[in-house]
Design a protein around this nucleic acid. Structure first.
Lengths: 188, 188
DNA sequence: GGCTTGATGTGATATAGGTCACACTGATTT
DNA sequence: AAATCAGTGTGACCTATATCACATCAAGCC
């Protein structure tokens, strides 16, 4: 299934077979079961996971124990606690699986090595991070300028396939609204 | 004043005098006056500005003409419309000056060249973008999990120096709350 | 088959924050 | 000196959304 990873990388930089084989040596496969935690707040979180199959969420638990979903990740997406990962600190986020999940992860050490050894990969990660930055900025604008129902409509059009695999309560949490409000919105 | 730029870069990668001179050839100085626009929604926005002196804001105008501030930038900060910049599309954001400001900008073409020619700089931009990504994620969490007054307190402790240079109405817009609400909060 | 659990809907009520309107102060402009 | 304008405060009222409580339905489990 690693071809998924190669495919994604090659959307940005072309690799020879040897190069890809080299890239692969920096990754480790790992499986998780539904409900299993990949990252727990308070623990180290030195890995960035590329999803081959399955579905996960990353979330923050506030002081009142309320859950706020930052991200979902399904096939072909990446997920981590970026702060813990890049700054090599302890996680503030949690990541768990909504379905049985199969991943390939790269540790921050391996990533640094890989980037140093194969500049194409540094370029790849650069592009990926930049795209992520732009997406986050859009999300901030959406939180600031749109009403609950507009954000929901936007979610539907952006992620139709995700929608079908997620309970509505989780979509609500991602959108920053309550379960009940989302229920009333989607009824209308 | 270019030493400010060198100083910032060298927090992440060390440069020889020659290397920095080379880096500098990719930048262009430019001054703006208070109220002047640096980027206007609808126009191209192919430059990323490093602020030597002054203060700017980037903002989005929604359909109702309401302003939503995404970012401020003062000395030692960078500002652009990242989407327009990296994807070479037309701007959706506006950037204008709150004070007379002096910048050095790098066009996206020059940045690509520079990164290709001097891998240290690619590494520098990578670090900068990653840090930005993490900051945006924190802001999303803050918008989702904190009340207006908590967000304001956080802003005060994060950016005490900015606070003094900004009218409260702009701080309110950045925090995603109304002028009036901020006034009542800061009174309490 | 009965039972727990997860997902969803919906009514009643509460509230944070928005909106509108107006007042006051200091600058800046003419 | 008068006049405009930017920044700020504050009262009255409105509304989107949260919260609480309960009902329903389906699915997996003993």
């Amino acid at each position: 299934m690693e071809y998924l990873l190669r495919q994604q990388i090659e959307k940005i930089v072309k690799l020879t077979d040897d190069e890809f084989a080299f890239v692969l040596t920096h990754f480790t496969p790992r499986q998780f079961k539904k409900h299993q935690y990949v990252v727990q707040a308070g623990d180290a979180a030195p890995n960035d996971y590329f999803v081959l199959k399955g579905l996960l969420k990353s979330f923050y638990l506030d002081e009142q124990g309320k859950m706020h979903i930052l991200q979902f990740a399904m096939e072909d997406w990446w997920i981590s606690d970026p702060q813990a990962y890049h700054n090599k600190t302890v996680a503030t986020l949690n990541i768990d699986c909504l379905e049985d999940t199969s991943t390939m992860y790269i540790s921050i050490e391996n990533r640094e090595k890989l980037c140093a050894e194969l500049k194409k990969m540094e370029y790849f990660f650069m592009k990926k991070t930049t795209a992520g930055y732009i997406a986050l900025q859009r999300r901030i604008l959406s939180l600031m300028s749109q009403k609950a129902d507009e954000r929901y409509q936007q979610f539907i059009s952006l992620y139709p396939s995700l929608l079908q695999r997620l309970p509505k309560a989780l979509v609500a949490s991602y959108l920053g609204i309550s379960r009940e409000t989302l229920s009333r919105i989607s009824a209308a």
